[in-house]
Design a binder for these strands. Structure first.
Length: 864
RNA sequence: GCAAGCGUGGCGGAACUGGCAGACGCACUGGACUCAAAAUCCAGCGGGCUCAACCCCGUGCGGGUUCGACUCCCGCCGCUUGCACCA
């Protein structure tokens, strides 16, 4: 039994405070020793899978923001378990990545060692908060037993192509090879061009002085130190996520996600419909294809613009313009994507000296290069219609290019496209040649007409374009999953077979990049110069590693079967935990609204195509928790000195107080400031809960008695049960806790408290404050853990009040209140209301024009 | 610049499909207990009117719909987040 404890801030015995420190340690030890939260597959119960975005175990340890989302899922987990579900609420660590690698570069400590240490710290801190994780299901993305399967899935993608007819991934061996390709080398190249994982040259941030590739977040840091960073194409592994664009977009409709997140994903995928139009180049047998969403304005295209990086540029640039165009191209390479857009408030560009033919008008149009056209979107070239596009208009105005009108407003009003672009839809004008006319056609009709014409004359075709790009899947880093592909001296390559996995990351002493743009793996002789046992050929392994996103694309599946050596997750386990619609609730920061959540969806869909998972989408319901700000209202950061350490809060107030306070601060999704004083209110609440049931000796208080309570107290109890059930489902914990406080305020007033009411209240509080409730459950004389008890039900009949208060209004102004029987009808209420003295005063001598009675709410007399 | 979300006491925040604005907590004020303090318990706590009652004002600003608006509509202002020329 706990003894009265000393206050941390005073040298004498306090009056009846809840001894949180003793109780929390007691039960944490008890839960661990008794495997209270061990999870097994149990087909007799419905499952509930509640998932947190697993943390990156940094050296700094847990900060106060982590427990917010984790507490929310812990509450849901405990609540669902008490409601009869078999709950999976696991935790793991996403531990590959740059921060640990950089730590190793400066300290020389191996990232695996640092990771292990950091994970120990995280686990100790998480356990101190009392989460109900089954640690036997922990995953760690950096362990070979885990990344073996990440590699296996990479190979699954490498060994796949996307069959657009069947709309799914299929084995590469089933790829139809065109009959004119017969050379084995050419067949291999053809396959490579269709694999879901492929090699391409893609621009990276290259720093010549450092001899390394920089991550986007590092670029500014080094530029500030005076280093030059340029965009340079390098050999990279890519994943063909663009083949899934249509499905990634369509399946968003299956999800119960925040609408802002759905919007962001839609925008990221960026579907737009339009046409590809081919412009032949004058005096040259090349041509330029452009993508446009407004093919109806083709007659108004007075020039073309191509991206500086576009390969056509060097074929068409005239001698006279060559040096100027090349200088412009070099200047563009030095700009980051951000600078390129930020600095371009006014448009820049250079004439190539070349011309092309507008297929509709037959006119010669000049070809320019400009950095406002992006190489990676559409075809990397546009037809400029300055009369009907703002950007083109700005450019044409700056460089004196012709502007013509080909669309007029539907209402026939006159516009001046020389002054301002008219980009709204309208009616085609001045848009006809010998074989097609768009004049008089509304924009949508004009689009269809011109596309039909372009297709019939072979000068273009309708096309759907996505903003989404293929996923750059390699990093020139050490601390990531090795890519299980080897290259032979003759230029051929071999992917490892499943039985050769995992391909272990070799031990190295030096974590700095090789200086050639390759990862530290390039300096490991056994990695880049060995004899392949299967073929006897000399080989080198891929020196790129996978990005940090890789391991987080499928970790949720591993929780369902964490120790399987035969497969990443046994089908039975997958069906049990992911059945119906995948993860039931996923909670994590809004910063992952696009990348992680899009990559994981894509990865899951590839697995789905092969039948390895049973749902098209991994995460049914998603919730983003808000940020906890510093006491000064600013984001917590070391440099501002406003960081709150959870260890210190647990030491001073206890884990239950930390949990409750984080949930009481405000709505889970909102960002809200921490307040050190505020948590004292929670401590007071827990002390009152304690005193409501426990004596100074730690035994059951004599005020807790068997038998029913008063109808008023019963109503508070059943209202509390109802509110808890509803709020927990909606993750509205702040209002749940407010209701708990009301309960305690009411029951504290009473001399006698029903044992049943106390027990039910302890059960309501249990998901939020698991330690104090476990102790109280025992004090109340119950066997077993409160967390395995059945959540109380509420009785609707006990919630009904006999008498209710009605608001009295005269001309919509409140003039009084009255108590009426709950079952009083409208006529009776109206008559009673007229008797109220203050109402009579305001009705006096006036005509009642209208009476509004809302039963249970109000009476309103409108007087003239 | 574009898009979305949000603006409620000294503070964090409540208010279900339009029906008592300010639940609950923090801070503060007064009282009880105490030699005293802490802790605890009780009471008060948007503004105005010298107490109370009564009354008036009040949910960023300006309009509107409605018997009735924090809630719905239109236009501003401010903050937050996301995207940054996507043809």
């Amino acid at each position: 039994m706990p003894e009265p404890v000393r206050c941390s801030h005073a040298p004498y015995i306090c009056q009846m405070q809840y001894p949180f420190s003793i109780v929390e340690q007691k039960w944490q030890a008890h839960w661990a020793a008794n495997h209270t939260y061990k999870v097994d597959e149990d087909p007799s119960k419905p499952k509930y899978f509640v998932l947190d975005m697993f943390p990156y175990p940094s050296g700094a340890g847990l900060h106060i923001g982590h427990p917010e989302g984790y507490t929310a899922t812990d509450i849901v987990s405990r609540f669902k378990r008490m409601c009869g579900y078999n709950v999976l609420h696991p935790m793991g660590f996403d531990a590959f990545g740059l921060p640990t690698e950089r730590y190793s570069m400066t300290t020389g400590i191996h990232p695996a060692i640092a990771t292990e240490k950091n994970i120990e710290t995280f686990k100790r801190q998480l356990n101190a908060i009392g989460f109900d994780y089954d640690w036997s299901r922990q995953v760690n993305t950096t362990l070979p037993e885990y990344y073996k399967w990440t590699q296996w899935m990479f190979l699954m993608m490498y060994n796949s192509w996307y069959d657009r007819a069947a709309n799914k991934a299929r084995p590469i061996d089933e790829l139809p090879i065109p009959s004119d390709i017969t050379d084995p080398q050419e067949i291999e190249t053809y396959k490579d061009n269709h694999r879901l994982a492929y090699i391409a040259y893609s621009p990276v941030n290259w720093c010549e002085a450092l001899g390394t590739v920089l991550a986007n977040e590092e670029v500014d840091e080094w530029k500030d130190k005076g280093y030059t960073v340029e965009r340079r194409p390098m050999r990279q592994w890519m994943l063909r996520i663009t083949e899934y664009a249509e499905r990634l977009l369509a399946d968003l409709s299956l999800l119960d996600w925040p609408s802002s997140t759905l919007d962001m994903q839609r925008h990221w995928i960026g579907r737009s419909e339009g046409a590809e139009v081919i412009f032949p180049i004058t005096g040259n047998n090349h041509s330029i294809a452009v993508f446009t969403t407004r093919p109806d304005t083709l007659f108004g295209a007075t020039y073309l613009v191509v991206a500086p990086e576009h390969p056509i540029v060097e074929h068409i640039v005239t001698e006279h313009q060559r040096s100027e165009v090349l200088a412009y191209k070099d200047a563009t390479a030095l700009k980051s994507d951000l600078e390129r857009t930020e600095l371009s408030k006014s448009k820049t560009g250079v004439f190539t000296g070349a011309h092309a033919v507008n297929p509709a008008t037959g006119a010669d149009v000049p070809i320019w290069v400009a950095d406002y056209v992006l190489a990676h979107y559409g075809t990397g070239a546009i037809m400029a219609v300055p009369g009907h596009d703002e950007r083109d208009h700005e450019f044409a105005t700056a460089f004196g290019l012709p502007i013509v009108q080909v669309v007029q407003p539907t209402d026939g009003s006159s516009i001046d496209v020389a002054a301002e672009a008219y980009s709204t839809y309208g009616i085609g004008v001045s848009s006809a040649n010998a074989s097609v006319s768009l004049n008089g056609l509304a924009t949508n009709e004009a689009k269809r007409t011109i596309i039909t014409w372009l297709e019939s004359t072979g000068q273009g075709k309708g096309r759907t374009q996505f903003r989404l790009r293929d996923w750059l899947f390699s990093r020139q880093r050490y601390w990531g999953e090795p890519i299980p592909i080897m290259f032979y001296e003759d230029g051929t390559k071999r992917a490892l077979d499943a039985d050769e996995l995992p391909l272990l990351l070799p031990d190295v002493k030096e974590f700095k990049p090789a200086g050639t743009g390759e990862s530290p793996l390039a300096t490991v002789d056994s990695w880049v110069n060995f004899i392949d046992a299967k073929t006897g050929k000399r080989a080198r392994f891929e020196t790129n590693t996978m990005p940090q996103w890789a391991g987080s694309c499928w970790y949720y599946l591993r929780y369902a079967d964490p120790h399987n050596h035969e497969t990443f997750c046994a089908p039975d386990n997958e069906r049990y935990w992911m059945g119906n619609h995948g993860v039931d609730l996923y909670v994590g920061g809004g910063e992952h609204a696009v990348l992680h959540l899009l990559y994981a969806r894509f990865w899951h869909k590839v697995l789905f195509d092969y039948g390895y998972v049973s749902t098209p989408e991994p995460f049914k319901k998603l919730f983003h928790q808000g940020l906890i700000m510093g006491e000064d209202g600013r984001k917590m950061s070391k440099s501002l000195g406003n960081v709150v350490n959870p260890d210190e809060v647990i030491a001073s107030h206890g884990a239950d107080a930390l949990r409750l306070y984080e949930m009481f601060l405000g709505p889970l999704e909102a960002s809200k400031p921490w307040n050190t004083r505020g948590i004292d209110g929670i401590t007071r609440f827990l002390d009152r809960v304690w005193r409501m049931m426990v004596t100074e000796e730690g035994t059951l208080s004599p005020s807790v008695v068997k038998g029913a309570g008063s109808p008023e107290l019963d109503r508070v109890l059943h209202a509390t049960i109802k509110k808890t059930r509803e709020d927990v489902e909606n993750l509205s914990f702040n209002t749940t806790i407010a209701q708990f406080m009301i309960f305690v305020n009411e029951y504290t007033k009473s001399e006698q408290r029903s044992h049943e009411a106390m027990s039910a209240f302890v059960q309501c509080l249990a998901p939020l404050a698991p330690h104090i409730t476990e102790e109280l459950w025992q004090v109340l004389g119950h066997d077993g853990s409160v967390h395995h008890s059945q959540f109380p039900a509420y009785d609707e009949a006990k919630l009904i009040e006999n008498e209710i208060e009605i608001v009295l209004q005269v001309s919509s102004k409140i003039r009084g209140k009255m108590i009426v029987p709950a079952d009083a009808d409208a006529a009776a209420i109206e008559e009673l209301a007229k008797c109220d003295p203050n109402v009579q005063k305001h009705l006096d001598g006036k005509q009642i024009k209208k009476t509004i009675v809302v039963p249970g709410k109000l009476v309103n007399f409108i007087v003239g």
